[in-house]
Write a protein that binds this DNA or RNA. Structure first.
Lengths: 252, 252
DNA sequence: GGAGAGGCTTCGGCATTACCGAATGAGGTT
DNA sequence: AACCTCATTCGGTAATGCCGAAGCCTCTCC
């Protein structure tokens, strides 16, 4: 792990949390001398990864990130292939549908179909949700080697968030058995979801597809869960997956 | 400029162009030994800024960029404040409206209102256009110190792209005089646009607002250009700008 | 099925690199 | 007007990351 890049990434991460920070604020946040931080920030700035806030001397994230992320979305096969299937699922179930991938200990939403009734219109693409508190996260963790899941900090988000490592691990095993994960109020009170794994040609779980519903509609009907599984299978097939559901654990 | 960060940014930039690259491809692209590139890529990977493509040994951009860019958009005052005005402008003119900021020698679109008639629905947010070939780019360059514009490579995109530095410089001076830039077929054949500067409380030009039209509708009517100027002025006022149009040149 | 090649990955010594302390400058506040 | 805070510059030092060479894996070709 090369130091300067690690520190640069931490600078971006800090700015992600705090929106706008001065050099000295960053310096205390990262426990580094101001001059060191300044060098890093200036380097990032020259590439547009951070920008000085207009008329001030604080820094914020830069426009290069927007361009990069746009290309990132374009390169994602899962997204391109999955979109029509998620749209179809949203139509059939009447629920909001999400596609997500893993980012360290979170799940990032790479595509979102809002409820066909148009009740909500917030753009969720790019949103990150703690993996342990979401159905998509459970799916993405369940098929990885267990150490990864074991090293998570099970931070409580609501009263219903699973915080016990043993309970969580048991939950993950159930996910593999059923090729499906559910979550009730674990991330946001009043909101629940179910998710299924998407597999690519190599057999690795590369994404999760989820339906999101008000907790009042939980648990979802079995037919709805079958629609969800079917969607996951269809996307996986388009990606060249040989089998579905995926086999557990040791896929490299 | 710290070397490792510069190289890391160049790796991201290469992946932005080529979507998927192996270590050796990156290594030749950057003229660096494979082991050096490997170290950089691995460091970026640990932060989710690049990801190994599933089932292969090539690398692509990573999901962390999506999360970062999402936060970037949230932190942009111009965008939050400008959206309602651009929407109104799109309604009044019947044209697609864009909001853009400068990224080195390009303009990145940070917000897009499609034509009210719904003719096109491609998400343009995140798209980057060479600054010298767009109306927004001319606006953003015109109010900067002239050296910045002088160091641009005026690459030809269509037959109508301005490639002569003298002509371009004269064009920029006209932009300042009129507080308005236009462009006819200079980036894409059949597409033309007009743009006006958005100023913040410090008096700096922080963004450009543009209307995009088929070249068949060019030149736009004077009333339309006034609507555009008015929109730019309204957004600027909301950002706390004391005066509009901005004064030329030497704003730091 | 075996041998080869190409490319990713690991390791460690050397020199370059970036780190950091202190000094300077800019901006804002009492 | 003088102080204080914070960003920024500079240069010496030693810690840092760079790169050559060797290992390992996968895929290909015979």
């Amino acid at each position: 792990m090369i130091q300067a890049i690690d520190r640069a990434a931490k600078v971006l991460s800090s700015l992600q949390g705090a929106r706008r920070l001065g050099i000295s604020e960053l310096s205390t946040a990262l426990s580094l001398p101001p001059s060191t931080v300044h060098g890093i920030v200036k380097s990032l700035q020259q590439h547009g990864l951070v920008a000085k806030e207009p008329g001030g001397n604080r820094y914020m994230l830069g426009p290069a990130l927007l361009k990069l992320s746009n290309v990132y979305l374009d390169t994602l096969d899962v997204r391109a292939r999955g979109m029509r299937w998620t749209h179809e699922l949203a139509r059939r179930t009447g629920l909001a549908v999400r596609l997500g991938v893993r980012l360290l200990d979170e799940v990032v939403i790479i595509h979102h179909d809002s409820r066909p009734d148009g009740s909500e219109q917030m753009p969720e693409t790019g949103l990150a949700i703690p993996a342990h508190a979401s159905a998509m996260g459970k799916v993405l963790l369940a098929y990885q080697p267990h150490e990864q899941a074991a090293s998570l900090a099970l931070r409580s988000l609501t009263g219903d968030t699973i915080t016990d490592p043993g309970v969580f691990r048991a939950d993950l095993e159930k996910v593999v058995d059923e090729a499906l994960a559910t979550e009730k109020n674990e991330a946001i009170l009043g909101e629940s979801s179910a998710a299924a794994p998407v597999v690519d040609h190599s057999g690795a779980v590369v994404a999760a597809v989820a339906v999101v519903m008000p907790t009042t509609e939980f648990p979802p009907a079995p037919t709805m869960l079958n629609d969800l599984r079917e969607t996951a299978r269809n996307i996986s097939r388009e990606l060249g997956a040989a089998q579905w559901p995926p086999t557990s654990g040791l896929i490299r």
